[in-house]
Amino acid sequence: MNRKTLSITLGAGLFIALPVVAVMAGEPYLVTLFSRILIYALAAVSLDLMLGFGGMVSLGHAAFFGIGAYVVCILSFHGCEGTPILTWPFQLGGHQSGLVLWPAAVLLSGTAAAVIGALSLRTSGMHFIMITLAFSQMLYYFFVSLEAYGGDDGISLFSRNTFAGVDLTNDMQFYYLCLAALAAFLFFSYRLVHSRFGMVIRGCKENERRMKSLGFPTFRYRLVCFVIAGAGAGLAGALIANQTEYVSPGLMHWTRSGEILVMVLLGGMGTLFGPVLGATALLLMEEFLSIYTEHWMVYLGPFLILVVLFAKRGIYGLLAGENSNHG
């Protein structure tokens, strides 16, 4: 067993065993904390698909995260109230079941990604970064202005969704559901980056001009990659809405996009497990630094600069050793 498989197996084992250990150790709040970590890891993996593999530096990924969360909250708000969301052009009611709400969250954030991506991908480089950022802020202000759903203050979820036979109000069961969602998305991503499609987006990252001259309509492939990433973030958003039982525009603020980006870089860009490590490291750091000082960001900022300047390969690079790309 090489270092890479060893690290992955060990990590997976830790995540599986964690809730049991936490409860036995009398620290059940860890289960909640780690649910959050898993959800952010999912968002970070989805960003890494387009950033690390597709070479698209988006600073607006939290927009899709937020859309996913809002879809769940708004639909279940109407589901509980029994009021329709739309009366025209067709009657549309709310819902309570995660089996309906979560796919809806994925679908809608994917659709938003298709629109935003189609416009942003006309540009590249610095323009692309600024435009994705501007779009996410536009959505942020849109939700701030939505008084019907709490505006600036956000909106609470009456209760967690129902989901097949799983009891989401049980933190332990919720944790394992998040873990399953992350594992499924990781497996999907693993197949994706090694598929024909994955080869194409990796090629686009390295040399888009050559990809075109080989005969690939690169815009379409990059757009689909953008949509897949957005949909993944939407799923993470649906989960976070259930985890915190509350959604506010703050979820899609651009600094949130920045944080997700930091997770990807910290863990290791262009690897699948790197973002999981990055999310874990960043959120744990936040959690524990904030015990000692409320001003932990004053340390995190310079730390980040040092990582950028000196440790670009991220934690996963350190753990898995050389040649760990595309794992």
């Binding site: 970064i129 960001m297 900022g301 980040l304 990582v307």
Partner: peptide, 30 residues
Amino acid sequence: VLRRLYKKDHLDQVLATFGLIMFFNELTRI
């Protein structure tokens, strides 16, 4: 900081300057 970023790619610049924002915001709070 910035001088070391001129030759790096945009992603590095985004992250490092994001770090600067965190630092300055928190510093003013202190």
